[in-house]
């Protein structure tokens, strides 16, 4: 192992890291873009040269996962395809990759209480935040009222968009506990359902809202 690689493993962060000040919160999350690619890294990516990985901690569904990520990995790809440092898959496949570019809401998760497209957030940026995925909404066998209402009203068909809609609806009701019909439509406008279950999704959100009040 080269000297440089040894050093990288110790610090768990590459000299060629994508991010300046990763893990220190120095990158203001609210300012886009948060990613600065240096020329060397870009060249490495171009040629397919091995890109160094970083060990980070993610708090997902109130559990801490230590994961090794490439700087380019999104939160979505870590949830679905990532491994912890013991080599176990996170296997949190509830959030779905549908458009992979923030157009459909299929990968919606909550980050610090807000609905976020997991495909649009780098895993590195999710450090130090509370991440809740659809797998973390139920309390044991007790489903969240939004989940119960989705089943009751058949607010799903193939169900592929459902995890995203459920998390989006939950986040929306957190902010607006007693929405009007129009507000529900606006609140969920970031999600797409190709089976066209919308009318029953609206009903489900209304029912969940009544249960949560």
């Amino acid at each position: 192992m080269s000297k440089e690689k040894e050093q990288n493993q110790e610090t768990a962060i590459s000299r060629r890291s994508f991010l300046k000040g990763v893990g220190t919160g120095a990158v203001a999350a609210s300012v886009a873009p948060t990613v600065f690619i240096d020329a060397e890294t870009a060249a490495a990516a171009q040629t397919g040269e091995e890109i160094n990985r970083a060990k980070i901690k993610l708090n997902i569904n109130a559990q801490t996962y230590e994961v090794e990520v490439e700087p380019r990995m999104t939160l979505l790809s870590v949830l679905r395809d990532g491994f912890d440092t013991s080599g176990n898959r996170l296997d949190l496949t509830g959030a779905k990759p549908i458009c992979e570019r923030g157009e459909c809401g299929g990968c919606t998760v909550q980050v610090d209480g807000k609905a976020v497209y997991a495909c649009m957030m780098l895993a590195l940026d999710a450090q130090g935040k509370q991440i809740t995925t659809v797998e973390g909404l139920a309390n044991g066998d007790n489903l969240h009222p939004v989940q119960e209402a989705f089943i009751q009203h058949d607010a799903l068909m193939c169900g592929f968009c459902t995890p995203g809609f459920v998390v989006a609806a939950k986040s929306f009701l957190d902010q607006n506990p007693s929405p009007s019909h129009e507000e529900i439509k606006e609140g969920l406008a970031g999600n797409i359902c190709r089976c066209g279950t919308y009318p029953f999704i609206f009903e489900a959100v209304k029912t969940a809202s009544r249960k949560l009040l």
Partner: peptide, 21 residues
């Protein structure tokens, strides 16, 4: 009648081909 796959689909437990690891 509520669909039998409902609970799996709203909790993310339902495994689609895309989710098979």
């Amino acid at each position: 009648v509520s669909r039998l796959s409902g609970t799996d689909k709203v909790t993310g437990k339902a495994k689609y081909t895309f989710d098979i690891n």
